[in-house]
Simulated scan of single mutants.
Amino acid sequence: MPASTAALPPHGEGPAGDRAVQQALETAWPADISPVDEQRLRVLGTSLLRADATGVGRARWPRLFDSAEQEIAPAFATARFRVQAVIARRDGPAGRAVVHLVWAGLDRGGTFTDGRITDLQFIRSVTKGVARWNPEFWH
């Protein structure tokens, strides 16, 4: 990342530092997809990460989480999970995108860590004139 990382808040700053993390991420990686697609992808990426980390919303992703995975205890506490920053950017050829998330969470061992990073890849498909973004792969 460029010099903008100097503006990042110290670890443990809490929600007060999230805006600075978001701004640093946007500065380091300028937008290259439409605002509509970016907003859709940000929502999808956040929802998918939350489902994986906390178990909340796994039913929305039946192809990614089978019924056995939905029964597994989540790795992170729902109440102590938050996305600090999220952007969506093009990932190679048109129709491919990556959602880059910076997040914080309390794991089952009781350790709270912020600044966790997850990248989720999505592919755009069009069926009967309706465009959708779908996760490229999982696990």
Rank of each mutant, 00 (worst) to 15 (best):
V83H: 09
A51Q: 08
G95S: 01
D52H: 13
T54S: 11
A68W: 01
A79W: 06
L41E: 02
R50K: 15
D32I: 00
I117T: 13
I72G: 01
D91Y: 12
R63W: 02
A73E: 06
T46D: 15
T5W: 08
D66R: 01
D107N: 15
R96E: 03
L49C: 04
F137L: 06
Q23V: 09
A79M: 07
R60I: 00
P9V: 06
I117A: 09
F137N: 09
A79Q: 15
R108L: 00
A28L: 04
T46N: 13
P93M: 01
P35I: 04
I123E: 11
G17H: 06
A77G: 07
E13L: 03
W103H: 08
E69Q: 14
R89F: 08
G12Y: 03
A7D: 14
L48M: 10
V98M: 13
T113F: 03
A94T: 00
L120G: 04
A131P: 15
S47K: 12
R42K: 15
A79E: 15
D66H: 04
S4Y: 09
R96G: 00
T111D: 08
N134P: 00
F122E: 00
A104K: 04
D91C: 04
E71P: 02
T27E: 15
V102H: 13
G105M: 07
D37S: 12
